[in-house]
């Protein structure tokens, strides 16, 4: 009640505001970077940073959907399975059925959207708790993925398909900055997809009715319903979008690795949920931003890349991720109780 002045006096400067709002996580990100830069020789190099960003671009794309689900006070744990299934469907169509490139893309995307639709329908219209509904679709998706592949990985030898994620934009004259000093740096097109999708998500959440409705439903679903919002429809749509985003993620991985294994996407949901939560999104819904989520994604990225570059055993990486999540949530809780 007392100090809403800090909230009330909204600075016109969006950048300053962004830093103020996400101060804790930004500080965390900077500290992590400093630690790795000081302790690890090849961490703070242009080529490593590019590699790191590219490796986490799919997580960023999934996070766009996960953010919406969590903003509504729900969750989607089927994302990893959907990435695997859509990737597998695309690979199967291209390699085993010699399907047309565009058709394969469209069908993969449709599969993602349909899974999203099933999730959304179960949650919004049948009132199945989100965790349960997406747990079920996760299991179904993973199962179907294994049925299609018969447990065998499928290689993709279609140049057009492999170019989807394999394309790079070379920055001329940057040979000196690269890891081996011979090839110029290049920006993977995956990174560009991720940036575009993050930007679209920002627009969707901040500049459209859809976004306002998502925040309203997450903040108080009944009040939203009484304000004339079709809460069922707007509960469903984010899942459909998430399904589509996962399909994009699946296609990217399939194209990038030029093949799909039936375990593709396993535990992707963990990284996505972690990033969104670290980014300051409340698990009970209603509050959270794309900006915060980006920081969350970067923290996850820096942590796994940095520890890899440092040569730390991957089992420890899981431990560190867990610790960071606890710290982030504790900061969030403390910040909220301070307001009281």
């Amino acid at each position: 009640m007392a100090n809403n002045k800090s909230i009330a006096v909204k600075d016109s400067n969006a950048v300053v505001n962004y830093f103020k709002k996400n101060f804790g996580v930004i500080l965390g990100l900077v500290i992590l970077n400093v630690i790795f830069a000081v302790t690890t020789k090849n961490y703070f190099t242009a080529s490593n940073i590019l590699t790191m960003l590219q490796n986490n671009a799919v997580n960023a794309i999934i996070c766009c959907g996960m953010l919406m689900a969590i903003l509504m006070g729900q969750i989607d744990i089927s994302v990893g399975s959907t990435v695997g299934l859509t990737g597998m469907v695309g690979a199967y169509l291209i390699t085993n059925l010699h399907c047309n490139f565009f058709l394969a893309l469209v069908i993969s995307l449709l599969v993602g959207l349909i899974i999203g639709l099933i999730n959304g329908f179960c949650i919004a219209y049948l009132k199945i708790p989100a965790f349960v509904a997406t747990l079920a679709t996760m299991s179904i998706g993973r199962g179907v993925c294994k049925i299609i592949s018969k447990g065998i990985s499928i290689r993709i030898r279609d140049d057009a398909y492999n170019a989807i994620a394999g394309t790079k934009i070379v920055i001329p004259g940057t040979e000196a900055l690269s890891a081996n000093g011979r090839v110029p740096l290049s920006v993977s097109v995956i990174l560009i997809y991720a940036i575009i999708l993050l930007a679209l998500t920002w627009l969707l959440l901040n500049k459209t009715k859809f976004g306002y409705y998502i925040y309203a439903i997450g903040g108080n679903e009944t009040a939203a319903k009484y304000s004339g919002i079709d809460t069922k429809l707007y509960n469903l749509l984010p899942y459909v979008i998430t399904g589509g985003l996962c399909a994009v993620g699946g296609i990217i991985w399939a194209s990038k690795l030029q093949g799909v294994q039936s375990t593709l996407g396993e535990s992707f949901e963990m990284d996505a949920i972690s990033a969104v939560v670290i980014g300051g999104t409340s698990m009970s819904g209603g509050s959270g931003t794309v900006g915060g989520t980006i920081i969350g994604i970067l923290i996850i990225a820096v942590l796994s890349n940095g520890l890899n570059v440092m040569g730390v055993n991957s089992f420890w990486q899981d431990v560190f991720k867990g610790i960071i999540i606890i710290v982030a949530v504790v900061i969030d809780v403390l910040r909220k109780s301070k307001k009281r």
């Binding site: 925040y215 309203a216 108080n220 009040a223 939203a224 209603g286």
Partner: peptide
């Protein structure tokens, strides 16, 4: 009636 965690602008326009 209200989305308590959101601001007045948000609520009035909802």
């Amino acid at each position: 009636g209200l989305v308590l965690m959101n601001d007045i602008e948000f609520n009035m326009g909802l």
